[in-house]
């Protein structure tokens, strides 16, 4: 046929020359699919925004162990539940071991999706076995209410790292003295200590408890240990979008690093 075929790149004077031809834009989705490495930031489970400051990462890092402990104040259970909330609402399975008195209505109010929550309230003497088993299947395991030998703690932390799960341990301010266990923080990557707090909304014979301010100190046992202090309102006052509100965040590189 005698039809003139326009040569590529010459029909439109505005297009780049053959040497610097524009590459077709690779859709972002494909780029993500073919990326060979799993970056550390992709190994995060979502967490409520207020915790990002404390944890030093925008989410819960898979394979890490978090210890929530009480130092003379209330609020560990609420903090632990708030840690689960964001991840469970996107369909991540959470297992809870040993907390037979857990207030599940409160868990719902703090944003935990109960349809992805499974409880083993009374593991009896199989506590560490059950925690280890759940680490195989769940992405987050919240364990509390029991004492463990240091060897078991280490073993469970290693298990969490192997299975790319997050282990959250809860120790401390149970309502009854009989249940108070030793703080379980050995081997934890981040320790969140509840050092103070306040209940808002309650007067003398009037009002009701509306929110609970929890003052936290996070100690990170990373390459550069540091302490971060923040206060969170649990649950947030209605109308505010984030479920955890940082009121004051103050980074203090200090005593932990000197140790």
């Amino acid at each position: 046929m005698a039809l003139p075929v326009p040569e590529a790149g010459e029909s439109n004077p505005g297009s780049p020359g053959p040497g610097q031809r524009a590459r077709p834009a690779v859709p972002g989705l494909i780029a993500q699919r073919v990326r060979p490495l799993v970056l550390a930031r992709d190994e995060l489970l979502p967490v409520a925004p207020g915790f990002a400051e404390l944890l030093g990462t925008p989410g819960l890092r898979r394979g890490s162990t978090l210890a929530v402990t009480a130092e003379g104040a209330r609020g560990t259970t609420a903090v632990a539940l708030a840690l689960l909330a964001a991840a469970s609402s996107v369909g991540v399975w959470c297992g809870v071991v040993g907390l037979e008195d857990l207030g599940l209505v409160a868990a719902d109010e703090l944003g935990v999706a109960l349809d992805h929550l499974v409880l083993v309230p009374r593991p009896a003497r199989r506590f560490s076995t059950v925690v280890a088993a759940l680490l195989d299947g769940c992405d987050i395991v919240l364990a509390g209410g029991s004492e463990l030998a240091p060897a078991d703690r280490r073993r469970l932390s290693v298990r969490a790292r192997e299975r790319r799960a997050v282990l959250i341990t809860l120790a401390g301010s149970q309502a009854t003295a009989a249940l108070v266990g030793r703080p379980w923080s050995g081997g934890a990557d981040v320790r969140l200590s509840v050092v103070g707090g306040e209940f808002a909304g309650l007067g003398s014979g009037s009002g009701r408890i509306r929110s609970h301010r929890v003052d936290l100190i996070a100690t990170r046992h990373a390459a550069s240990p540091r302490e971060v202090q923040a206060s969170l309102w649990l649950p947030p006052s209605p109308g505010d979008a984030p479920s955890v509100l940082p009121v004051a965040t103050r980074a203090a590189v200090g005593s932990a690093g000197a140790r």
């Binding site: 209505v105 868990a107 109960l114 929550l117 083993v120 009374r122 076995t129 059950v130």
Partner: peptide, 23 residues
């Protein structure tokens, strides 16, 4: 995988020991 793990724990402690909550 989750179901299998919970079945294993149920095998350890009995079927009633692993529970799901409903409001």
């Amino acid at each position: 995988r989750v179901a299998r793990v919970f079945a294993r724990v149920q095998g350890l402690l009995g079927p009633e020991a692993v529970v799901r909550p409903l409001l």
